[in-house]
Protein backbone atom coordinates (compact mmCIF):
# COMPACT_ATOMS: atom_id res chain seq x y z
CA UNK A 1 0.00 0.00 0.00
CA UNK A 2 1.18 3.48 -0.78
CA UNK A 3 1.68 5.66 2.32
CA UNK A 4 -0.91 8.33 2.90
CA UNK A 5 -1.50 11.40 5.00
CA UNK A 6 -4.38 10.96 7.37
CA UNK A 7 -6.66 13.75 8.48
CA UNK A 8 -9.86 13.96 10.41
CA UNK A 9 -11.85 17.03 9.43
CA UNK A 10 -14.14 18.45 12.09
CA UNK A 11 -17.09 19.33 9.92
CA UNK A 12 -18.39 18.99 6.40
CA UNK A 13 -17.12 22.34 5.23
CA UNK A 14 -13.62 21.51 6.47
CA UNK A 15 -13.77 18.20 4.65
CA UNK A 16 -14.83 19.88 1.43
CA UNK A 17 -12.18 22.56 1.81
CA UNK A 18 -9.32 20.11 2.36
CA UNK A 19 -10.53 17.93 -0.47
CA UNK A 20 -10.77 20.86 -2.89
CA UNK A 21 -7.31 21.98 -1.97
CA UNK A 22 -5.66 18.64 -2.67
CA UNK A 23 -7.79 17.17 -5.41
CA UNK A 24 -7.45 18.06 -9.02
CA UNK A 25 -10.99 18.85 -10.11
CA UNK A 26 -10.41 16.91 -13.28
CA UNK A 27 -9.77 13.73 -11.31
CA UNK A 28 -12.39 11.12 -10.72
CA UNK A 29 -13.11 10.77 -7.02
CA UNK A 30 -11.72 7.23 -7.18
CA UNK A 31 -8.46 8.45 -8.73
CA UNK A 32 -8.00 11.66 -6.77
CA UNK A 33 -5.02 12.17 -4.51
CA UNK A 34 -7.39 12.90 -1.68
CA UNK A 35 -10.24 10.54 -0.84
CA UNK A 36 -12.84 10.29 1.88
CA UNK A 37 -13.09 7.32 4.18
CA UNK A 38 -15.87 6.37 6.60
CA UNK A 39 -16.55 2.68 7.13
CA UNK A 40 -13.36 1.69 5.31
CA UNK A 41 -14.80 -1.66 4.26
CA UNK A 42 -14.40 -1.02 0.54
CA UNK A 43 -11.60 1.53 0.37
CA UNK A 44 -9.24 -0.18 2.82
CA UNK A 45 -9.66 -3.41 0.87
CA UNK A 46 -8.83 -1.69 -2.41
CA UNK A 47 -5.91 0.21 -0.91
CA UNK A 48 -4.43 -3.07 0.30
CA UNK A 49 -4.82 -4.48 -3.18
CA UNK A 50 -3.18 -1.47 -4.81
CA UNK A 51 -6.36 -0.66 -6.72
CA UNK A 52 -7.00 2.58 -4.81
CA UNK A 53 -3.96 4.75 -4.20
CA UNK A 54 -4.94 7.92 -2.35
CA UNK A 55 -2.13 10.09 -1.01
CA UNK A 56 -4.39 11.65 1.57
CA UNK A 57 -7.33 10.15 3.44
CA UNK A 58 -9.97 12.32 5.02
CA UNK A 59 -11.72 10.40 7.76
CA UNK A 60 -15.32 11.57 7.93
CA UNK A 61 -16.15 9.86 11.20
CA UNK A 62 -15.47 12.94 13.33
CA UNK A 63 -17.66 15.31 11.33
CA UNK A 64 -19.60 17.15 13.97
CA UNK A 65 -22.98 17.57 12.24
CA UNK A 66 -25.38 15.32 14.15
CA UNK A 67 -27.72 14.94 11.18
CA UNK A 68 -25.05 12.87 9.47
CA UNK A 69 -25.77 10.13 12.00
CA UNK A 70 -29.52 10.36 12.14
CA UNK A 71 -32.46 8.75 10.45
CA UNK A 72 -35.34 11.21 10.30
CA UNK A 73 -38.78 10.28 9.14
CA UNK A 74 -41.49 12.75 8.31
CA UNK A 75 -43.43 14.49 5.55
CA UNK A 76 -43.29 11.43 3.35
CA UNK A 77 -39.49 11.32 3.41
CA UNK A 78 -37.02 9.03 5.12
CA UNK A 79 -33.78 10.97 5.44
CA UNK A 80 -30.74 8.83 6.08
CA UNK A 81 -27.68 10.70 7.34
CA UNK A 82 -24.66 9.69 5.29
CA UNK A 83 -22.75 8.27 8.25
CA UNK A 84 -25.55 6.07 9.51
CA UNK A 85 -24.21 2.54 9.48
CA UNK A 86 -25.91 -0.10 7.36
CA UNK A 87 -26.64 -2.21 10.42
CA UNK A 88 -28.38 0.63 12.24
CA UNK A 89 -30.52 1.42 9.25
CA UNK A 90 -31.39 -2.25 8.74
CA UNK A 91 -32.48 -2.57 12.36
CA UNK A 92 -34.61 0.57 12.36
CA UNK A 93 -38.15 -0.62 13.10
CA UNK A 94 -39.85 2.39 11.56
CA UNK A 95 -37.96 2.00 8.30
CA UNK A 96 -38.85 -1.65 8.20
CA UNK A 97 -42.51 -0.89 8.78
CA UNK A 98 -42.68 1.92 6.27
CA UNK A 99 -40.62 0.32 3.55
CA UNK A 100 -39.43 -3.29 4.04
CA UNK A 101 -37.47 -3.11 0.79
CA UNK A 102 -34.97 -0.72 2.35
CA UNK A 103 -34.43 -2.89 5.43
CA UNK A 104 -34.20 -6.12 3.48
CA UNK A 105 -31.70 -4.76 1.00
CA UNK A 106 -29.50 -3.70 3.89
CA UNK A 107 -29.90 -6.85 5.93
CA UNK A 108 -29.09 -9.15 3.05
CA UNK A 109 -25.86 -7.31 2.26
CA UNK A 110 -22.41 -8.34 3.46
CA UNK A 111 -22.06 -9.55 7.07
CA UNK A 112 -23.03 -8.31 10.50
CA UNK A 113 -19.58 -6.85 11.09
CA UNK A 114 -19.38 -5.11 7.74
CA UNK A 115 -22.86 -3.68 8.19
CA UNK A 116 -21.74 -2.29 11.54
CA UNK A 117 -18.82 -0.55 9.87
CA UNK A 118 -20.09 0.57 6.48
CA UNK A 119 -21.75 3.95 6.15
CA UNK A 120 -24.79 4.27 3.92
CA UNK A 121 -23.14 6.79 1.62
CA UNK A 122 -20.01 4.69 1.36
CA UNK A 123 -22.11 1.63 0.66
CA UNK A 124 -23.84 3.11 -2.36
CA UNK A 125 -20.45 4.25 -3.68
CA UNK A 126 -18.82 0.83 -3.31
CA UNK A 127 -16.84 -0.20 -6.34
CA UNK A 128 -17.26 -3.35 -8.35
CA UNK A 129 -15.86 -6.64 -7.05
CA UNK A 130 -14.93 -7.83 -10.54
CA UNK A 131 -12.03 -10.23 -10.02
CA UNK A 132 -10.10 -8.70 -12.87
CA UNK A 133 -10.57 -5.22 -11.43
CA UNK A 134 -9.47 -6.32 -7.97
CA UNK A 135 -6.14 -7.66 -9.02
CA UNK A 136 -3.80 -5.13 -10.55
CA UNK A 137 -1.93 -7.60 -12.75
CA UNK A 138 -4.91 -7.91 -15.12
CA UNK A 139 -5.74 -5.33 -17.76
CA UNK A 140 -8.83 -3.35 -16.75
CA UNK A 141 -10.36 -0.30 -18.38
CA UNK A 142 -11.99 0.74 -15.16
CA UNK A 143 -8.74 0.65 -13.18
CA UNK A 144 -6.31 1.61 -15.93
CA UNK A 145 -8.20 3.30 -18.76
CA UNK A 146 -7.30 1.97 -22.17
CA UNK A 147 -5.59 -1.18 -20.88
CA UNK A 148 -8.40 -3.47 -22.05
CA UNK A 149 -10.88 -5.73 -20.30
CA UNK A 150 -9.72 -9.16 -19.17
CA UNK A 151 -13.22 -10.16 -18.09
CA UNK A 152 -14.79 -9.80 -21.51
CA UNK A 153 -13.32 -13.09 -22.76
CA UNK A 154 -12.29 -14.39 -19.36
CA UNK A 155 -14.10 -16.00 -16.47
CA UNK A 156 -17.13 -13.72 -16.40
CA UNK A 157 -19.69 -15.70 -14.43
CA UNK A 158 -20.29 -12.81 -12.03
CA UNK A 159 -20.46 -10.18 -14.66
CA UNK A 160 -23.21 -7.92 -15.89
CA UNK A 161 -25.62 -8.52 -18.77
CA UNK A 162 -27.32 -5.12 -18.58
CA UNK A 163 -25.71 -1.72 -19.05
CA UNK A 164 -22.53 -3.20 -20.40
CA UNK A 165 -20.22 -1.65 -22.96
CA UNK A 166 -17.40 -2.88 -25.16
CA UNK A 167 -15.03 -1.62 -22.50
CA UNK A 168 -16.50 -2.99 -19.30
CA UNK A 169 -18.91 -5.62 -18.02
CA UNK A 170 -18.17 -5.25 -14.31
CA UNK A 171 -21.20 -5.69 -12.08
CA UNK A 172 -22.35 -3.17 -9.53
CA UNK A 173 -22.71 -5.45 -6.53
CA UNK A 174 -24.53 -3.27 -4.02
CA UNK A 175 -28.00 -4.08 -2.71
CA UNK A 176 -29.15 -0.91 -0.94
CA UNK A 177 -28.67 1.09 -4.12
CA UNK A 178 -31.22 -1.09 -5.88
CA UNK A 179 -33.79 -0.12 -3.28
CA UNK A 180 -32.84 3.53 -3.59
CA UNK A 181 -33.06 3.69 -7.34
CA UNK A 182 -36.38 1.85 -7.35
CA UNK A 183 -37.80 4.29 -4.80
CA UNK A 184 -36.68 7.47 -6.61
CA UNK A 185 -34.27 8.48 -3.86
CA UNK A 186 -32.29 11.70 -3.88
CA UNK A 187 -28.79 12.35 -2.56
CA UNK A 188 -27.79 15.54 -0.81
CA UNK A 189 -24.29 16.67 -1.64
CA UNK A 190 -22.01 19.33 -0.31
CA UNK A 191 -19.04 20.36 -2.37
CA UNK A 192 -16.95 23.24 -3.47
CA UNK A 193 -19.86 24.46 -5.52
CA UNK A 194 -22.10 24.48 -2.49
CA UNK A 195 -24.93 22.21 -1.46
CA UNK A 196 -26.94 20.47 -4.13
CA UNK A 197 -29.28 17.57 -4.68
CA UNK A 198 -29.01 14.83 -7.22
CA UNK A 199 -31.46 12.15 -8.20
CA UNK A 200 -30.03 8.84 -7.04
CA UNK A 201 -30.57 7.57 -10.57
CA UNK A 202 -28.03 10.15 -11.78
CA UNK A 203 -25.37 9.28 -9.23
CA UNK A 204 -23.85 6.32 -11.04
CA UNK A 205 -22.70 6.41 -14.66
CA UNK A 206 -22.89 3.64 -17.20
CA UNK A 207 -19.43 2.44 -18.19
CA UNK A 208 -19.67 3.34 -21.88
CA UNK A 209 -16.30 4.40 -23.21
CA UNK A 210 -15.18 5.64 -19.80
CA UNK A 211 -15.71 2.86 -17.27
CA UNK A 212 -13.21 4.61 -15.00
CA UNK A 213 -15.74 7.41 -14.46
CA UNK A 214 -18.14 5.75 -12.07
CA UNK A 215 -20.22 8.60 -10.66
CA UNK A 216 -21.22 12.17 -11.36
CA UNK A 217 -19.49 13.35 -8.21
CA UNK A 218 -16.50 15.69 -8.04
CA UNK A 219 -13.58 14.64 -5.86
CA UNK A 220 -14.53 17.18 -3.19
CA UNK A 221 -18.21 16.28 -3.11
CA UNK A 222 -19.39 14.85 0.18
CA UNK A 223 -22.71 13.01 0.26
CA UNK A 224 -24.38 14.18 3.46
CA UNK A 225 -27.74 12.45 3.22
CA UNK A 226 -29.95 10.17 1.19
CA UNK A 227 -33.64 10.93 1.03
CA UNK A 228 -36.25 8.34 0.16
CA UNK A 229 -39.88 9.23 -0.43
CA UNK A 230 -42.45 6.91 1.07
CA UNK A 231 -46.20 6.53 1.16
CA UNK A 232 -48.73 3.83 1.93
CA UNK A 233 -47.67 1.82 -1.13
CA UNK A 234 -44.09 1.49 0.06
CA UNK A 235 -45.22 -0.98 2.72
CA UNK A 236 -45.72 -3.42 -0.12
CA UNK A 237 -42.10 -3.60 -1.08
CA UNK A 238 -39.54 -6.35 -1.01
CA UNK A 239 -35.95 -7.25 -1.87
CA UNK A 240 -35.17 -10.73 -3.16
CA UNK A 241 -31.50 -11.72 -3.44
CA UNK A 242 -30.38 -14.95 -5.07
CA UNK A 243 -26.83 -16.10 -4.43
CA UNK A 244 -24.60 -19.13 -4.44
CA UNK A 245 -24.77 -19.53 -0.71
CA UNK A 246 -27.36 -18.60 1.85
CA UNK A 247 -25.55 -15.56 3.22
CA UNK A 248 -22.47 -13.37 2.90
CA UNK A 249 -22.29 -13.47 -0.87
CA UNK A 250 -22.99 -11.06 -3.66
CA UNK A 251 -26.18 -11.36 -5.64
CA UNK A 252 -26.14 -13.46 -8.77
CA UNK A 253 -29.45 -11.73 -9.37
CA UNK A 254 -31.66 -9.63 -7.16
CA UNK A 255 -34.85 -7.68 -7.51
CA UNK A 256 -36.09 -4.66 -5.61
CA UNK A 257 -39.83 -4.34 -5.98
CA UNK A 258 -42.45 -1.94 -4.66
CA UNK A 259 -46.06 -2.32 -5.80
CA UNK A 260 -48.80 0.23 -5.62
CA UNK A 261 -51.90 -1.97 -5.99
CA UNK A 262 -55.51 -1.13 -6.47
CA UNK A 263 -57.06 -4.41 -5.44
CA UNK A 264 -55.29 -6.80 -7.80
CA UNK A 265 -54.58 -4.11 -10.36
CA UNK A 266 -51.13 -2.55 -10.51
CA UNK A 267 -51.34 1.20 -10.27
CA UNK A 268 -47.60 1.60 -10.34
CA UNK A 269 -44.69 -0.81 -10.00
CA UNK A 270 -41.19 0.23 -9.02
CA UNK A 271 -38.49 -2.26 -9.95
CA UNK A 272 -34.72 -2.39 -9.80
CA UNK A 273 -32.39 -5.26 -10.59
CA UNK A 274 -29.13 -6.15 -8.85
CA UNK A 275 -26.28 -8.51 -9.64
CA UNK A 276 -26.99 -8.31 -13.36
CA UNK A 277 -26.08 -4.74 -14.33
CA UNK A 278 -23.08 -2.44 -14.35
CA UNK A 279 -24.86 0.20 -12.27
CA UNK A 280 -27.91 0.28 -9.99
CA UNK A 281 -30.55 -0.68 -12.53
CA UNK A 282 -34.07 0.66 -12.75
CA UNK A 283 -36.19 -1.65 -14.90
CA UNK A 284 -38.57 0.91 -16.42
CA UNK A 285 -39.64 -1.35 -19.26
CA UNK A 286 -40.79 -3.96 -16.76
CA UNK A 287 -42.63 -1.34 -14.77
CA UNK A 288 -44.45 -0.17 -17.88
CA UNK A 289 -45.34 -3.73 -18.79
CA UNK A 290 -47.10 -4.08 -15.44
CA UNK A 291 -48.94 -0.78 -15.45
CA UNK A 292 -52.68 -1.32 -15.15
CA UNK A 293 -52.39 -5.11 -15.24
CA UNK A 294 -53.55 -7.72 -12.80
CA UNK A 295 -50.43 -9.37 -11.51
CA UNK A 296 -50.18 -13.08 -12.12
CA UNK A 297 -47.36 -15.41 -13.19
CA UNK A 298 -47.89 -14.70 -16.87
CA UNK A 299 -47.94 -10.92 -16.47
CA UNK A 300 -44.87 -11.13 -14.26
CA UNK A 301 -43.09 -13.16 -16.92
CA UNK A 302 -43.94 -10.58 -19.56
CA UNK A 303 -42.47 -7.87 -17.35
CA UNK A 304 -39.35 -9.97 -16.74
CA UNK A 305 -38.91 -10.49 -20.48
CA UNK A 306 -39.14 -6.75 -20.96
CA UNK A 307 -36.58 -6.14 -18.22
CA UNK A 308 -34.00 -8.31 -19.96
CA UNK A 309 -34.85 -7.55 -23.57
CA UNK A 310 -31.59 -5.67 -24.07
CA UNK A 311 -29.40 -8.06 -22.08
CA UNK A 312 -25.99 -8.92 -23.53
CA UNK A 313 -24.68 -12.26 -22.26
CA UNK A 314 -21.07 -13.40 -22.29
CA UNK A 315 -19.70 -16.92 -22.16
CA UNK A 316 -20.14 -17.71 -18.45
CA UNK A 317 -22.91 -15.33 -17.42
CA UNK A 318 -25.65 -16.17 -19.90
CA UNK A 319 -27.55 -17.90 -17.09
CA UNK A 320 -28.13 -14.52 -15.49
CA UNK A 321 -30.78 -13.76 -18.06
CA UNK A 322 -33.10 -16.65 -17.17
CA UNK A 323 -32.09 -16.36 -13.51
CA UNK A 324 -32.71 -12.61 -13.48
CA UNK A 325 -36.12 -13.11 -15.03
CA UNK A 326 -37.07 -15.84 -12.58
CA UNK A 327 -35.84 -13.69 -9.72
CA UNK A 328 -38.01 -10.80 -10.82
CA UNK A 329 -41.05 -13.02 -11.31
CA UNK A 330 -40.63 -14.53 -7.86
CA UNK A 331 -40.08 -11.11 -6.30
CA UNK A 332 -43.18 -9.70 -7.96
CA UNK A 333 -45.36 -12.58 -6.82
CA UNK A 334 -43.95 -12.50 -3.30
CA UNK A 335 -44.53 -8.75 -3.12
CA UNK A 336 -48.06 -9.15 -4.39
CA UNK A 337 -48.73 -11.71 -1.68
CA UNK A 338 -47.32 -9.64 1.17
CA UNK A 339 -49.69 -9.00 4.04
CA UNK A 340 -49.51 -5.27 4.59
Amino acid sequence: MRPFVYERPADVSAAVAVASRFADQQDQPTKADVQFIAGATNLADYMKLGVAKPKRLLDLNALREPTLRQIKIGDGIIRFGALVRMGEAADNDDVRRICPLLSESLKLAASGQIRNMASLAGNVLQRTRCEYFRETSWPCNKRDPGSGCAAMEGFNRQHAVLGTSDGCIATYHGDFAQALIALDATVEIEGKRGARRMEFAKLHRLPGDTPDIETNLAPDDVIVAIEVPFAAWSRRSHYLKIRDRESYAFALASAAVALDLDGNMIRHARIALGGVATVPWRAKAAEEALQGKTLDQEVAETAADAAFAEAQPRRYNAFKIPLGKRTLVRALLETRDMKV
Binding site: Y132, D244, S247, Y248
Partner: peptide, 16 residues
Protein backbone atom coordinates in the same frame (compact mmCIF):
# COMPACT_ATOMS: atom_id res chain seq x y z
CA UNK B 1 -6.48 -18.47 -10.97
CA UNK B 2 -9.20 -15.85 -10.99
CA UNK B 3 -10.98 -16.10 -7.65
CA UNK B 4 -8.01 -16.12 -5.32
CA UNK B 5 -9.73 -15.00 -2.14
CA UNK B 6 -12.53 -15.86 0.25
CA UNK B 7 -14.85 -13.35 -1.39
CA UNK B 8 -14.99 -15.39 -4.57
CA UNK B 9 -13.79 -18.83 -3.47
CA UNK B 10 -16.93 -19.74 -1.62
CA UNK B 11 -17.04 -22.12 1.32
CA UNK B 12 -20.18 -22.83 3.35
CA UNK B 13 -21.16 -20.19 5.90
CA UNK B 14 -23.15 -20.70 9.07
CA UNK B 15 -26.48 -19.98 7.34
CA UNK B 16 -25.88 -22.78 4.83
Amino acid sequence: YVNRDLQDYLVPVNAD
